[in-house]
Design a protein around this nucleic acid. Structure first.
Lengths: 252, 252
DNA sequence: GCGCGGAAACTTGTATACGAATCCTGCCCG
DNA sequence: CGGGCAGGATTCGTATACAAGTTTCCGCGC
């Protein structure tokens, strides 16, 4: 853990856009931030698979803090749809159903479709450079075979775009959506699918640079649809799923 | 208080779309829900003006619960941008700056622009009836001079629309946006502005019914812009604001 | 042998206690 | 007379203690 560039969203009860926050300010809030990030990264890297139960006492011992602190971190994680909190029964890693996954992707398409033109109105050459740097980092992780980091960096590219749209509220929504999408991808991506995408991010930046708004918007839409299409989101109910899964085993 | 139809968002760590929740299930979670709603309604009705400090001990005594419970409610309120939590300095009612207000409205326009066509794809006649009923309730509050309820019901109409779009994620975002807009309107609306709008909701439903997509989308956009335009969102810094406010008093 | 209580162990929910930071007041000094 | 500093009071942040709910497992009856 402790990937130094990991970027779990720090929003929530913060109006200011950004803060240094490099070193723990007073050793106060940094603690539950640490728990938040650790769980966040673990879930995203699939070290904590969906459905995993997170007992409070365990985390207490791991991080040497009281249950009060752990609880706050869990509450935030639940609010961001990374965990699910079941009353009196503890927290488990979220496992969004296919229907929910589709809705998350649909919402994301709806937002990003409109972010592209906003970026084109606002972006400076320096911003485009930033986007290209992000793409470079992404490719690097891709070629290194670091799947977890690739998923994260790939999401980060979209977050930079959202930031360039110049609306912090929108950026907050996109942060939540990208996070949830990453979780869904980690959950449902077909195992054998090729990790590297075919430079759609690169092409998108080019289209933005050239001012081709309709083409850029279109590419964004197709890009997101393609990602969703790769997922194994068979729309079966939990019951059928179970029946199907057992159908090959009951005759020895 | 205890307006029986008040609808503070219950989302967050809940995957299920809706629950009865009429009576307190076990007296357990209902308590901090009660605090949440009470503060929510009080802020929206401007009984708690922006900047008001909410001491934890006060709420503890009012609701006869421990600080633990109050704290959780405050955390949720802060996450929904109704309060602002300042470390070691307590919670205050949020007072979004003009710049933030603009961003909230911009984000809302962006989403609702796309919600209209989605509604037109999904809505049944029964849904349109629901919308018209909501409008009726809104007009009633309007004519009764109940400004606080009118703001709330007026927002509820938009939430029904979001619900009819058939995407729960989107509905969650819209819930947050409508809430924040209500707070902003309560903050910045010009005092003398007429409370009743000129039946734009009614016309919107008609256009949706007739299948005139472009016209409906356009009306929605203009509707939201009109609301924003009515606000007193002078882009002045806090300092200038103060200087201006005192300029009429220092020469007796 | 199988299913069904029931009690113990464990986990979560809530309240309370204590340490730390902030705010307020009054005093001292320039 | 005004500004700054120190001490007390208040309020927040964290840890701990106790109560209530859930899970587990064992023993009993069928």
């Amino acid at each position: 853990m402790t990937g130094k560039l990991s970027a779990p969203p720090d929003r929530a009860h913060k109006t200011a856009p950004a803060q240094p926050e490099d070193k723990p300010k007073r050793g106060a809030r940094a603690v539950d931030l640490r728990i938040y990030r650790a769980v966040f990264n673990a879930v995203m890297s699939q070290r904590l698979p969906p459905g995993t139960r997170l007992a409070e006492a365990e985390l207490c011992e791991l991080y040497q803090v009281s249950r009060t602190t752990v609880r706050r971190a869990l509450l935030r994680l639940a609010h961001d749809h990374i965990l699910e909190l079941r009353p009196n029964r503890g927290a488990v890693v979220a496992s969004p159903a296919p229907a929910e996954a589709r809705e998350v992707f649909a919402a994301r398409r709806l937002l990003e479709r409109q972010i592209v033109p906003a970026v084109m109105r606002n972006a400076t050459p320096a911003d485009l450079t930033r986007l290209r740097q992000s793409i470079a980092a992404e490719h690097q992780a891709c070629h290194a075979g670091d799947r977890a980091n690739w998923i994260r960096l790939s999401g980060e590219f979209h977050l930079i775009l959202a930031e360039l749209a110049g609306n912090r509220v929108l950026l907050g929504f996109m942060t939540e959506l990208v996070t949830r999408c990453s979780l869904i991808i980690a959950l449902y991506d077909s195992p054998g699918s090729p990790m590297c995408e075919n430079d759609e991010h690169q092409r998108l930046v080019s289209l933005i640079e050239q001012g081709l708004q309709d083409e850029a918007t279109d590419l964004m839409e197709r890009h997101l649809l393609k990602i969703e299409a790769r997922l194994r989101l068979a729309e079966r109910t939990q019951k059928l799923d179970l029946a199907q899964a057992l159908s090959g085993q009951d005759l020895p």
